[in-house]
């Protein structure tokens, strides 16, 4: 049986959001990889962003869609600037 790594939607929402933003849970490289690989496969940026948001929300079901989109956009823009 594989452990479900998804955090439970409990605790202070602001703290959970901040923890996700700070990438302390380790989901950021996963989200960035999904986005990058989809873009490299030729998917439109918007589709890759939507898919990366699904990935983030699987790890953080406590985030609502606008919050998740906001985080993903910030991460992938930051990643793009590095390359």
């Amino acid at each position: 049986m594989v452990a479900d790594r998804r955090p439970r939607p409990e605790g202070d929402p602001a703290e959970r959001f901040a923890a996700c933003e700070a990438a302390v849970c380790g989901c950021r490289p996963v989200v960035e990889r999904a986005y990058r690989e989809l873009v490299d496969c030729g998917r439109p940026d918007r589709h890759a962003l939507e898919a990366a948001t699904v990935v983030l929300r699987w790890h953080h079901p406590e985030l609502d869609v606008p919050q998740a989109v906001q985080i993903v956009e910030r991460w992938v823009v930051a990643e793009d600037r590095l390359h």
């Binding site: 990889r33 999904a34 496969c41 998917r43 699904v54 990935v55």
Partner: peptide, 17 residues
């Protein structure tokens, strides 16, 4: 232009496509 028509499976735990 994206070449052949592919679909994608995304590994939710690693981000691999």
């Amino acid at each position: 232009a994206r070449g052949d028509h592919h679909h994608h499976l995304i590994d939710i735990e690693t981000g691999e496509v």
